[in-house]
């Protein structure tokens, strides 16, 4: 059984579909990368897994299950037992995600107490262990530090400590390194991957960093305008992308423009609420778009392990199959 299964999950805000019928699953011990530019629905889809979509957002799905339990059917209280313990999440901005009014120790112990209980001394001890585990020096003194006294990298470590406090089976990391220095980024990713392997967690890694995904993820999902446009094993998707959007994403990396005078960029932006095209959502920006692309919504094709949502998927050489 998969750890997490999403089937045709949509998140709508009024008429706007921030996430449009996406399906994927995560296995235990697997690292799943989700990439896509801003506004493609990466964060919103994972927030919906956590049950954190606020009014007026609405979550609908044919299936949203965690270890066989239907997350949408269960009551709020029961779901809250799962979130924070079995499924945990790390957010993008560590400096604002910790409550400025409470100490680091308080915020770790709060999570432990809610889901596991125990007496004061045990909790204290466990919190110090967690801080040690995420590589915070002098954890005893850090326990009484306030978030404003920590650096960004340190805050992110604290957030990771809180996330893994209750030994989650699934960890969702929403751009965990975006707000950090490049040198710190590598440390945090190393820490996350180490913990993931130690505890055999499922890890959903949402990021802009394609190189990172290529390096650490087993499978990757490419999202565009709320839809999954391509999915498959990370190495394969990046070496031979089948969707023009994936190709464009890879081509827009500074590394791939080495020796050229200009960086390749896809013209235009992700369609918003009022300018969604009728056919393929990428069609206005796609260099290979045909008449059919503008009129007909492409279905997802290919085997379940390697899907692409395109009328004219690319071949091994990166040119469209007519």
């Amino acid at each position: 059984m998969s750890l997490l299964t999403l089937d045709k999950l949509s998140v709508t805000f009024g008429n706007f579909r921030a996430v449009d019928q996406i399906s994927y699953s995560v296995e235990a011990g697997e690292v799943l990368g989700i990439v896509g530019e801003s506004g493609s629905g990466k964060s919103v889809s994972s927030l919906s897994v956590m049950g954190l979509i606020d009014h007026p957002g609405k979550v609908k799905a044919a299936q949203l299950t965690f270890m066989g339990q239907d997350l949408l059917a269960m009551g709020e209280k029961q779901r809250r037992k799962i979130t924070g313990s079995d499924i945990a999440m790390i957010f993008q901005d560590p400096m604002t995600s910790l409550n400025p009014c409470y100490t680091v120790g308080y915020q770790i112990i709060e999570a432990l107490k809610t889901h596991q209980g125990g007496n004061k001394k045990q909790l204290q001890q466990r919190a110090i262990e967690l801080l040690t585990l995420v590589g915070i020096p002098a954890p005893e003194t850090r326990m009484s530090a306030y978030p404003h006294q920590l650096s960004g990298g340190m805050s992110q470590r604290v957030m990771i400590a809180i996330a893994i406090a209750c030994n989650p089976k699934l960890l969702i990391a929403d751009e965990p390194t975006t707000a950090l220095d490049v040198t710190i980024q590598a440390q945090i990713i190393d820490l996350l991957i180490n913990l993931q392997q130690q505890k055999q967690m499922g890890l959903v890694l949402i990021t802009h960093d394609l190189a990172l995904v290529a390096e650490v993820a087993h499978r990757v999902i490419v999202m565009y305008a709320g839809q999954i446009v391509e999915s498959g094993p990370a190495a394969e998707v990046f070496s031979t992308p089948k969707h023009p959007y994936t190709q464009a994403l890879l081509a827009s990396l500074p590394e791939s423009a080495a020796g050229k005078s200009r960086l390749m960029a896809l013209p235009g932006v992700v369609p918003g609420q009022f300018d969604r095209p009728s056919g393929c959502l990428l069609s206005p920006r796609c260099p290979y778009a045909t008449e059919r692309c503008h009129e007909e919504v492409p279905p997802a094709q290919g085997p379940l392990t390697r899907q692409v949502k395109c009328h004219t998927p690319l071949d091994m050489n990166g040119s469209p199959i007519k």
Partner: peptide, 26 residues
């Protein structure tokens, strides 16, 4: 609406703690 309240929700703590411990003090 702040990040830390969203984070508090993600920790799965009871609603009254999110409201009265996390948000109210700030």
């Amino acid at each position: 609406d702040s990040d830390y309240v969203r984070y508090a929700w993600s920790k799965g703590i009871p609603a009254h703690r999110v409201y009265f411990v996390h948000a109210l003090k700030n």
